[in-house]
Nucleic acid binder design. Structure first.
Lengths: 137, 137
DNA sequence: CACCATAACTTGCATTTTGCAAGTTACTAG
DNA sequence: CTAGTAACTTGCAAAATGCAAGTTATGGTG
């Protein structure tokens, strides 16, 4: 067994999740988000290159899986694997401590699957007029 | 309530602990380490400037406290506050998941308080011959 | 058919954070 | 007077992050 920094389980978990973004992506997945734009839409405003990087690392680590939900062009959505789902107790412990230490914070609600995200039916697009580009409002 | 990134408790915890080192310092404290050199001696080999930075941030956040254990020159040791101790369930959850995902890792044992670390008695110094400087063994 | 919009990324820097090695301070022991 | 020790600090290089914009491959609208 060769480990990056030490044989401490905490250390090895930190080598995987020890930054300001990875666990937020996991949180979003637990909440029911699946798609790139949904992750980008979270209030913390992750940069798209960071998101791509983290999704990749999580894929490689086997915490999430990817599947095409559409062909031409192929579009992917992401789901937690069983392994990734095992992180929930950690998130729960963080929420418990976090809510106590940061009064006013509140666990985010699970996502209501939006009509546009139908899993099998033909997704009808609304002719919404807002651009891809984020405004620093 | 104004939060740095969002009102999510997880996000705010990550703003405090979301890096590769802070939780390791907490781990060391939970294990019974108190002094600068003890933290430096951990197998992950934290750099001394990073350690100083993290101890400061944890002090400011109220997760640890500092007290002089010697005068002339004044030397400090660090202890978890009640608030900091509340992190144990998070560490525990991480250890549980980590041990499962990284076979071969093992929770580190609590430190046996070394004779040189007497809390009240006059600490006698052994004339040890090893330098401060770390060798890349 | 010519545009515009959308989704999932990628690319090119600028800024920030880490990491490494060495230096500083203030003593005590010999 | 010299060496050693503990707790930091400093200077600079390297890596990670953040921002804005670009790319690819469609489908819808007029």
């Amino acid at each position: 067994m060769k480990f990056e920094r030490s044989s401490c389980p905490i250390t090895n978990v930190l080598d995987l999740l020890g930054d300001k973004w990875t666990l937020l992506v996991i949180r979003d997945l637990v909440l029911g988000k699946r798609r790139y734009q949904e992750f980008l839409a979270s209030p913390e405003e992750i940069a798209s290159n960071i998101l791509a990087d983290r999704l990749n690392k999580l894929l490689v680590a086997g915490l999430i899986s990817r599947r095409a939900y559409q062909r031409n062009p192929t579009r992917y959505e992401y789901l937690l694997t069983k392994k990734g789902n095992g992180l929930e107790p950690i998130l729960e412990a963080i929420v418990v401590w976090g809510k106590k230490q940061f009064p006013g914070t509140k666990k985010f609600p699970r996502i209501k699957q939006s009509p546009g995200l139908a899993v099998h039916a033909g997704a009808r697009r609304t002719r919404a007029g807002n651009s891809n580009r984020r405004s620093k409002a």
